[in-house]
Design a protein around this nucleic acid. Structure first.
Lengths: 190, 190
DNA sequence: CTGATTTCTTATCATATGTAAAGTCGGGAC
DNA sequence: GTCCCGACTTTACATATGATAAGAAATCAG
């Protein structure tokens, strides 16, 4: 049985986890390796897996009228989830792509949700995780809607200074909601 | 004891609710009347109450550099929550204001959360509610970042055709992330 | 009803961002 | 090493939105 230690440590940030629950989580998760540029989940697939990144960077992207759009990045030691598909059971128009070779833990979402009744600590932990995700989304909306592209670029740089070195700028541009040309302009001044 | 029926029906949309749990919820909720233009919750207050609107419209707003910004609207038969404060325990920079005279059910959030351990169905229902809210926020981000102001206006009109009649346009403009002038221009063409 | 205040629209001008096209740079394939 | 291709930047021009101000319409108080 592979270690899963990083995942279990991550989960413990959100609440205590009994030994029994820990074992149950291990049984619904498996460790996989994914190469750079591979789509972990393709467009059109219904999200039935919650991914935890031990290493590597992933992005969620989709197409808006033939133009590729980056919705989010996820870095090591965090989850990658297409919430709008996971919680509706509908196919996602979004794909998850790895931007670096990565070690990933894939959690079977339905199996995980079945643990909720037996292991209340598992339900509580994931509830806290998704509550925190909700807060993140609310804050992201504020940042998108009420800050300029330049402000958002600097905020992103401050929060993830390594991203600039690890992620192609064109993806950062589309994440910020601007074109690569615009991002170039912002970076050029000063 | 006041009826609370609309709230309980709303909750049942998200899962079954036992009689015992129903009674427990009644005990942490109270019914109030709020007048138009009143701030149900002021800026700077930590969110400790979840509101359900039986009637009326509310909006969440805040100030971004002296300019008032509308974050969201809530209509009758839905919840009003400042998630970023409720789930972090930190004071909110946002206020909740009524846009019409309203009948509101105020739920004590901490008392509600204490019910989670005794009444698993209450925890499950509110988990589903907040999961749905997470999906909403993800979709809102997509709509904000990757659609034009005009597309967003038409989408909002389609989803809430009554809003235009009940909500001052300046609030709709700031919700859409544009100025009232811009909204006027969009409405003028055609 | 009347006047006062707020909301909404219209017009003008400034600016940020988009689109298109061309040029530069750098890494990978062979 | 050489070539090629993709990523990034730069420039020129077009367009959408913002800021400001003034006027029209609606709402509110008395």
């Amino acid at each position: 049985m592979s270690s899963m230690t990083p995942l279990l440590n991550y989960l413990r940030n959100f609440g205590p986890l009994s030994k029994a629950a820990e074992d149950a989580v291990r049984l619904v998760a498996r460790r996989i390796e994914v190469k750079r540029n591979v789509d972990l989940q393709p467009i059109g697939h219904t999200c039935k897996t919650i991914y935890f990144l031990e290493s590597g960077i992933a992005r969620i992207y989709y197409y808006k009228a033939d133009v590729e759009v980056t919705e989010s990045f996820s870095f090591e030691n965090s989850l990658v989830v297409r919430y709008e598909s996971l919680f509706t059971g509908r196919p996602s128009r979004k794909a998850i792509q790895m931007l670096e070779d990565a070690e990933v833990i894939a959690i079977d979402a339905n199996a995980l949700f079945r643990l909720y009744d037996q292991h209340h600590d598992v339900e509580r932990i994931f509830r806290h995780i998704f509550e925190a995700a909700l807060v993140d989304q609310v804050n992201r909306i504020e940042s998108i809607q009420f800050h300029t592209a330049e402000e958002r670029y600097h905020a992103f740089m401050k929060e993830r200074p390594d991203a600039i070195l690890r992620v192609p700028l064109k993806y950062i541009a589309s994440y910020l909601g601007i074109t690569p040309v615009s991002l170039s302009r912002i970076r050029a001044q000063r």
